[in-house]
Design a protein around this nucleic acid. Structure first.
Length: 203
DNA sequence: CATAGGATTATCT
DNA sequence: GATAATCCTATGC
């Protein structure tokens, strides 16, 4: 398949509330060492602000060893461990020194689907919507680990691309974020309308 | 279909 | 020592 154009760092050097909805429909790629390319279309993201107004953000209480990448250059990967088991992946927003991020929550598998099922430990006939619908599932399916924390998403093995010509234009819905205890009411979750690969389907 | 509970560990208090 | 931006399985409608 043909990939869309790259993002420039400037795209991410602004509010994650602007960046997040524009990432719905973009593609996330991981080129594995053996040449296999894992590609998915982003259908669900969440924004986490860094200006102190967002109590659910990891950077809400300032810079720590874990969240230090959030304060680094925009367009890089912030990966962290969740509930001791899962890895979650974000793209850093705002210029260096400020902290904000967009969490990748669900992908529609596009290429390397057989490998994704293997990485997830799923049966060969497992449906596409079970592969990367959820932040932990997404990183497992794409082979993204904590070792990728801090890597650029603008070039290299991990690669974020704009939609390619001919890709579907997705309608974006807004809703409250999932699985958090603070800032529960803030509408910072952005989803592709009616898409089967969302982590939680519409009613 | 919906909900509840356990798993499991890095990070911070 | 408690918490956590979750997932899977089991159980009950």
């Amino acid at each position: 398949m043909r990939l869309g154009p790259r993002f420039h760092a400037a795209f991410f050097a602004r509010s994650c509330l602007e960046v997040a909805p524009e990432l719905v429909g973009a593609t996330l790629i991981h080129r594995l060492a053996d040449g296999v390319r894992l590609v998915g279309r982003i259908v669900e993201v969440e924004a986490y602000l860094g200006d102190g107004s967002d109590p659910a953000s990891h950077s809400h209480r300032g810079k720590t060893l874990r969240n230090s990448v959030m304060f680094g250059p925009p367009g890089h990967l912030y990966a962290y461990r969740s509930y001791g088991i899962h890895t979650c992946a974000n793209v850093v927003c705002k210029p260096r020194g400020q902290s904000a991020a967009v969490l990748f929550r669900a992908l529609e598998p596009l290429e390397g689907v057989v490998r994704m099922r293997e990485l997830r430990g799923l049966a060969p006939d497992a449906p596409a919507h079970a592969i990367a619908s959820g932040p932990g599932r997404l990183t497992q399916a794409l082979g993204v680990t904590l070792e990728h924390n801090g890597e650029s998403l603008l070039r290299g093995a991990l690669d974020l691309r704009r939609p390619a010509p001919g890709d579907p234009r997705l309608e974006v819905d807004t809703s409250p974020r999932i699985g958090i205890r603070r800032g529960v009411e803030l509408p910072y979750r952005f989803t592709a309308r009616g898409h089967p690969c969302l982590s939680r389907l519409r009613k």
